[in-house]
């Protein structure tokens, strides 16, 4: 008997997901931060104030779009040459370059913003949301357009989550809290509650 074929088979039985569904799914039902736990470092680190959270979110969205396009093209090349085992290394290298690009652009056009984002810009490289996006769109075998919409949804979902968190934390600043909840613990608890409420969005696609 022949070994299990290693070549890629088109699984035509799979339901074709519509673009609006992919978008909603990435923003709400499978929110990258609150349901898939991706991008938690900036989510906890930069969510103290709304006016730093928003630019961070926008920068992430931009990097997501760029790396989604790059990852799609790279994957085509890798599959064509049957060297998928280099995928991870190729992806991370591309993401690192994309971040560098955003960093340089920001530095040139908005030095003030560049300073306020500080250390977190290079850290987008190790933001798993970006790499996760690239990997998931590959696993789900999305087409080019689907990947792009998926990236947009993931980015918007990230902005939504980080803004909600920042809003809540700004309110918390003003209230009296027990001393042991100073620090990350209360942010995590808030994250848990947000995550629970986002579960209500599941089933949107059913």
């Amino acid at each position: 008997m022949q070994p299990a074929p290693l070549k890629h088979h088109k699984v035509t039985t799979m339901a074709t997901e519509t673009l609006s569904f992919i978008f909603l799914n990435a923003v709400l039902a499978n929110n990258f931060v609150l349901a898939l736990f991706l991008g938690l470092c900036p989510f906890l680190g930069v969510s103290g104030k709304i006016n730093t959270a928003l630019p961070m979110g926008l920068a992430t969205l931009f990097v997501m779009l760029v790396s989604s396009v790059c990852a799609f093209l790279i994957n085509e090349v890798l599959v064509a040459f049957e060297i998928e085992f280099l995928r991870l290394i190729a992806y991370i290298a591309v993401i690192a370059s994309a971040v560098q690009l955003v960093e340089m652009t920001l530095k040139k056009f908005s030095p003030a913003l560049f300073r306020s984002l500080g250390i977190f810009l290079p850290l987008i490289t190790t933001n798993c949301a970006i790499l996760g996006l690239a990997l998931f769109q590959t696993f789900k075998e999305y087409s080019f357009l689907q990947s792009l919409v998926y990236a947009l949804g993931a980015g918007v979902g990230f902005i939504l989550a980080i803004l909600l968190m920042a809003g809540l934390r700004e309110k918390l600043e003003l209230s009296t809290m027990p001393s042991i909840t100073q620090g990350a613990a209360v942010s995590l608890m808030l994250g848990g509650l947000l995550s629970l409420s986002f579960m209500g969005f599941a089933g949107l696609g059913g």
């Binding site: 609150l34 349901a35 898939l36 736990f37 001393s179 042991i180 909840t181 100073q182 620090g183 990350a184 613990a185 209360v186 942010s187 995590l188 608890m189 994250g191 848990g192 509650l193 995550s195 629970l196 579960m199």
Partner: peptide
């Protein structure tokens, strides 16, 4: 709820609270 995503946040938050309390 514990095996759902929210449980992860809540349990880690609880551990951090415990450590902070011990430290204080």
């Amino acid at each position: 709820v514990m095996v759902l995503p929210a449980g992860g946040f809540l349990v880690l938050g609880a551990w951090l609270l415990l450590f902070e309390w011990l430290k204080q």
